[in-house]
Design a binder for these strands. Structure first.
Length: 399
RNA sequence: GCGGCCGUAGUUCAACGGUAGAACGCCGCCCUGUCACGGCGGAGGUCGUGGGGUCAGCACCCAUCGGUCGCG
């Protein structure tokens, strides 16, 4: 894998470049649509490519459970199996340690607010207490045991196992197995976890080297919201021979930018950085300004399926009464398939009628909006207009 | 014409004689490495109408209107 920085943003960590993978080049910064189970929900690969996406991300844990990485391997690998010709990345399953563990059945997300985190009812007192609310993921020193949400079977995932699965799946870029830490954990726990995640990173790298294949491996920086831990993690993970780096874990919305900055000031400049699971428009500007090259996020597709659509004037809920007879486009000057062919009233009708096409048209628009926003930001870096573009965008988006 | 059953939220239906509920719909909010076509909240009913018995009725009795089924 080869990464070239073409242009740097003045007075910041931002840059634009090109990332070469076995399945094609990616112009960075870039947004990576999420197709957890080898499918961008509601869309065909052709639709995903047509809206401008260059690379997608799938999930190790979900594909391991169903249909099984061996099956995908027999099919000839992910690209052939799902008919996506472009680059693919797979997440290691580390996020499921969080989503099926500490966050399971709770109202916790990886983004939190400072006020929320001081709420004592959200703090988790006994880490390994079995009497705790039932979790589908339990963490040990060696790996994580998952209880399948599909059939209840128990699976033990270690860093080695995750890497083996990912090699079977055959993505272009794979991730080290980490623990995505809950924002409700205290500093002491964050510190313990960091040590473990660092050990897992080394083990992931060793296993990766053992296996032949042309894929690249990204290590993952953790450390929660703490400056020292973030810097410590960036230093350690950055010192290992990864092809690129993921920035993972939980953030408070307010200080996400400083956390990203701490990390990217330390990580090797010449290797690509991926901000895991982040993708609201304001976060994209923030990340790019602070040296992030790749983003993935379920937000555009998930909120689309629930009726929220991105526009340059902010998000709108297409199910609101005011759109039932609004025969204008979602965005008059949008170049996406949905806006070129359909009205708000029609899309609203599809949602109210629970038609499957609603999810498709909404997902096309939202992904186009986000993928294209990042492309425009990239362009603004080359044209030295990043800060003006950002200011102009925010003026309309948050009004 | 006779007999039975049914009239409760916008709709389809619940509710031992003691505070009228659900589902869907409607109105709105939320979603950041997807257990996610998901989650949360809100508005909305003088219980067809008119009498009566009862401390107390959506529920019991009578009448009436509407619907429905059966028999003529």
């Amino acid at each position: 894998m080869d990464f070239k920085i073409q242009k740097k943003l003045k007075n910041s960590l931002g840059r634009a470049g090109i990332l070469k993978t076995p399945h094609g080049e990616i112009e960075t910064p870039a947004f990576v649509p999420v197709g957890t189970k080898a499918s961008i929900k509601a869309l065909t690969p052709e639709q995903v490519a047509d809206l401008g996406a260059e690379i997608i991300l799938s999930n190790t844990y979900h594909l391991y459970l169903q249909p099984g990485d061996e099956t995908v391997a027999k099919a000839g690998g992910l690209h052939k199996f799902m008919n996506w010709q472009g680059p693919i990345m797979t997440d290691s399953g580390g996020f499921q340690v969080f989503s099926l563990g500490a966050a399971y059945g709770k109202e916790i997300s990886k983004i939190t607010t400072a006020t929320k985190i001081t709420d004592p009812s959200l703090l988790i007192p006994e880490r390994f207490d079995d009497s705790d609310a039932p979790r589908l993921a339990k963490i040990g020193q060696d790996g994580v045991s998952f209880k399948s949400h599909l059939d209840g079977s128990v699976h033990y995932i270690t860093p080695e196992k995750s890497i083996q699965i990912q090699h079977n799946l055959g993505a272009d870029i794979i991730f080290a197995f980490d623990e995505c830490t809950s924002p409700t954990e205290d500093l002491k726990y964050q510190e313990e976890v960091l040590e473990r995640t660092h050990k897992w990173a080394e083990r992931s790298l060793i296993e990766h080297k053992k296996l032949s294949g042309g894929c690249a491996l990204f290590g993952i920086v953790q450390g929660g919201r703490d400056e020292n831990l973030r810097k410590k993690s960036a230093k350690f993970i950055g010192s290992l021979e990864f092809d690129g780096y993921g920035i993972g874990g939980s953030f408070a919305k307010e200080d996400m930018s400083t956390a990203v900055k701490w990390v990217n000031e330390i990580l090797p400049e010449e290797r690509p950085r991926h901000l895991l699971g982040i993708g609201e428009p304001e976060d994209l500007f923030m990340g790019i300004e602070n040296g992030v090259d790749l983003f993935d996020c379920v937000a555009p597709t998930r909120i689309a399926r629930n009726g929220s659509l991105y526009t340059k004037n902010g998000k709108v809920n297409i199910m609101n009464a005011q759109y039932r007879e609004d025969f204008s486009k979602i965005e008059e000057d949008c170049g996406c398939y949905t806006c070129k062919n359909f009205t708000k009233a029609y899309v609203a009708h599809l949602f109210h009628g629970k038609e499957m096409l609603a999810a498709t048209l909404a997902s096309i628009h939202n992904l186009y909006f986000i993928v294209n926003l990042v492309k425009k930001i990239r362009q603004s870096i080359f044209e030295d207009t990043f800060f003006e573009f950002k200011k102009e965008f925010f003026k309309n988006y948050f009004k």
